[in-house]
Design a protein around this nucleic acid. Structure first.
Length: 240
DNA sequence: CGTATTTGACCTGCGC
DNA sequence: GCGCAGGTCAAATACG
């Protein structure tokens, strides 16, 4: 039987080792096996991230559609929303959401680790920071970024920590990219590598995998799934 | 050594 | 015109 979780990942992909499962001189074999497991884990991680990204895009699109249907254009000033007006004390409703405002301005709310002081939002594009300022209404600095394809791409973004919730980053995008995201490009390349030559998994960019792992670590759902999967494996080992 | 980031200086728009 | 705040520039610095 193939065991899968809600993400559709085969958790039996990792071979289980029992205590009496090795010969006395099998240190090299064990090392090779661990390397193989490591590669499999990396592959799983990239798959999980793929699914996570596509789900996130889907959710964003759905929420945009819902906002467009629900919004009445004569009610709102640029940069404001109904929820903000009615519940100024919290921005929880924005978590991970995307608001497309007038004049090609888009506001995105991203939940980050509160201890992480960097004003970096991974959105698939490459940015060059060109300034940072402390604004009057918010003690946390606002970072200014230009698309690294500038001046051919005119898009800019401003990133600032929310005044009410320090673990919420508010990103304001100005303009539309006239090129594809570098993430897609990279993803396509790694996907090709993954499916065309699975034996070359060891050549995966370790930094990229590290970033994916960090991103997944911040996702409570993923941690929960992982904990369930690991504990079930531990029980399995103990019982058999 | 090339590239990205930092940060103080400068520019611009707005209200008074 | 002046002061203030937000936005941008560019030299200095850090980093791989």
């Amino acid at each position: 039987m193939v065991e899968t979780n809600s993400l559709g990942i085969d958790l039996n992909a990792i071979p289980i080792h029992k205590a009496d499962d090795h010969t006395p001189d099998s240190n090299d074999d064990k090392l090779n096996q661990m390397n193989l497991e490591n590669k499999k884990l990396k592959e799983m991680l990239t798959l999980v991230l793929d699914k996570h990204n596509s789900l996130q895009n889907h959710v964003s699109k759905l929420m945009q559609d819902r906002d467009l249907l629900a919004s009445s254009p004569n009610k709102r000033k640029s940069g404001e929303c109904d929820e903000c007006n009615t519940s100024a004390s919290t921005e929880n409703h924005h978590q991970g959401t995307l608001k497309r405002l007038n004049n090609g301005i888009t506001r995105v709310y991203t939940r980050v680790d509160p201890s992480d002081k960097s004003l970096v939002v991974m959105d698939g594009y490459q940015w060059r920071k060109y300034g940072q300022k402390v604004t009057r209404d918010n003690p946390s600095p606002r970072a200014y970024y230009k698309c690294s394809f500038a001046p051919s791409c005119p898009v800019k973004k401003k990133v600032q920590r929310s005044l009410d919730e320090p673990d919420l980053l508010v990103t304001i995008y100005e303009g539309e990219h006239n090129h594809k995201s570098t993430d897609n490009e990279h993803e396509t390349q790694t996907s090709k590598a993954r499916f065309n030559s699975p034996l070359e998994l060891g050549k995966f960019d370790d930094t990229l995998v590290e970033q994916m792992a960090n991103s997944l670590r911040r996702n409570p759902d993923f941690i929960e799934e992982l904990a369930v999967a690991i504990s079930s494996k531990i029980f399995e080992n103990d019982l058999f």
